[in-house]
C-alpha cells in the first residue's frame, strides 16, 4: 500500500538524525519547542539543515458561568516554520503547525497558574511533534 518505514536503511528519514538545527529560542515557549524537537530529531551535529520558526499564541476564555466567572481557557498556538539547507540557504520545506490546549481555572490561584503553564508546555510539545511529523512526511522529496 505504498508505506515504508521512515527510518529504515534507505528509508526517507534515515539521514534526518542530528541533521536539523533549530534557531536559538528567545523565550520559554521557544525553549520548550526546541527541547522537544531535539528529543525527537537528536541534538544537532554538523547540522545540514536550519529550522526557523515563529510561534504565535492567543487565549480564548471558555465556559463562562451564569455568575460570569470564566471556568476554562483555550491556548491556541501556531508555528510557521521553514527548513533551509545550511549550505545553500535554500528552503527545502515549510509549513504551519497548529493546535490548542486548554486548562481549567476553577482551582486555587496556584492550581490555575501551574495548569496554565503546563498547558503552554504541552502545546509546545504538540507543535514540535507536528513539525517533526511534517519533516518525516516530506523528507522523501528533499532529503537526499
Amino acid at each position: 500500500c505504498g508505506f515504508s518505514p521512515a527510518y529504515a536503511p534507505g528509508g526517507p528519514a534515515e539521514r534526518l538524525w542530528g541533521a536539523v538545527r533549530a534557531d536559538d529560542p528567545s523565550d520559554r515557549q521557544g525553549f520548550e519547542l526546541v527541547e522537544r524537537l531535539e528529543e525527537r530529531l537528536g541534538r544537532p551535529a554538523a547540522a545540514r539543515f536550519d529550522l526557523t520558526y515563529r510561534i504565535a499564541t492567543d487565549i480564548d476564555s471558555v465556559g463562562i458561568t451564569g455568575e460570569n466567572s470564566i471556568t476554562r481557557y483555550n491556548l491556541n498556538g501556531r508555528v510557521d516554520f521553514s527548513l533551509k539547507d545550511h549550505a545553500s540557504g535554500q528552503v527545502v520545506t515549510s509549513g504551519r503547525a497548529r493546535s490548542f490546549t486548554s486548562w481549567s481555572a476553577t482551582g486555587s490561584t496556584v492550581a490555575t497558574l501551574s495548569a496554565e503553564e503546563d498547558a503552554s508546555s504541552r502545546l509546545m510539545r504538540i507543535l514540535a511533534d507536528e513539525i517533526v511529523t511534517h519533516l518525516l512526511a516530506t523528507s522523501g522529496r528533499w532529503l537526499k
Binding site: 490546549t101 486548554s102 482551582g107 501551574s114 503553564e117 498547558a119 504541552r122 509546545m124 504538540i126
Partner: peptide, 18 residues
Amino acid sequence: VLAEFDEGNLFSLSRFPG
C-alpha cells in the same frame, strides 16, 4: 489539581501539571 489529558502529555513520565 487541574490535570489535563491530551497529546502533549500522553507520553509524559508524569501527567500532573505541577
